Computed example of a mutant assay.
Amino acid sequence: MILEAVILNVKPGLESDFEVAFKEASKIISSIDGYLSHELHRCIEVERKYLLLVKWETLESHTVGFRSSAEYQEWKKLLHHFYEPFPTVEHFEEIEI
């Protein structure tokens, strides 16, 4: 399992619109092969800051399967205009302790 973690900074005044659009976009990402689950969290201390966590079966499920799909183009149309600056996406693997 791979965890995708992304800090999303939404442009001022667009938080409600972003949250509505994200609900629609959630239907898109959840239909992708290799998708396991996702969560969106709103930061308590910093306005307009969100944390997106997505679990994928493999790194390629996200970087190849999703990003090269027609669904990703729809995801981009729904969400990418909300971000400033554009987010950095990072992937993590679990360490057994």
Rank of each mutant, 00 (worst) to 15 (best):
I2E: 13
I2T: 09
E4M: 06
E4P: 03
V6P: 03
V6A: 07
I7S: 15
I7Q: 14
L8V: 05
L8H: 12
N9E: 09
V10L: 08
K11P: 03
G13I: 04
G13C: 08
L14N: 15
S16G: 06
S16K: 13
S16A: 13
D17Y: 09
F18E: 03
E19V: 14
E19C: 11
V20G: 04
V20L: 13
F22G: 06
A25T: 12
A25Q: 06
S26E: 13
I28E: 07
I28M: 02
S30F: 07
I32N: 05
G34T: 08
Y35Q: 01
Y35F: 10
L36P: 05
E39K: 11
E39P: 01
E39A: 10
L40V: 05
L40T: 00
H41W: 11
H41D: 10
R42L: 07
R42P: 04
R42G: 04
I44W: 10
I44F: 12
E45F: 13
E45V: 07
E45R: 14
E45M: 13
V46T: 15
V46H: 07
R48Q: 10
L51A: 04
L51M: 07
L52S: 08
L53A: 05
K55H: 14
K55G: 12
K55A: 14
W56D: 06
S61V: 01
S61M: 09
S61Q: 08
H62N: 08
H62T: 07
T63P: 05
V64L: 08
V64A: 08
G65P: 02
G65N: 06
F66D: 04
R67I: 02
S68V: 01
S68T: 13
S68P: 00
S68A: 06
A70N: 09
A70V: 08
E71T: 06
Y72F: 15
Y72H: 12
Q73C: 06
Q73F: 01
W75L: 03
L78G: 01
F82N: 00
Y83E: 00
Y83P: 00
E84K: 04
P85N: 01
P87M: 02
T88D: 09
E90I: 02
E90C: 03
E93Q: 12
E93S: 11
E96G: 07
I97D: 08
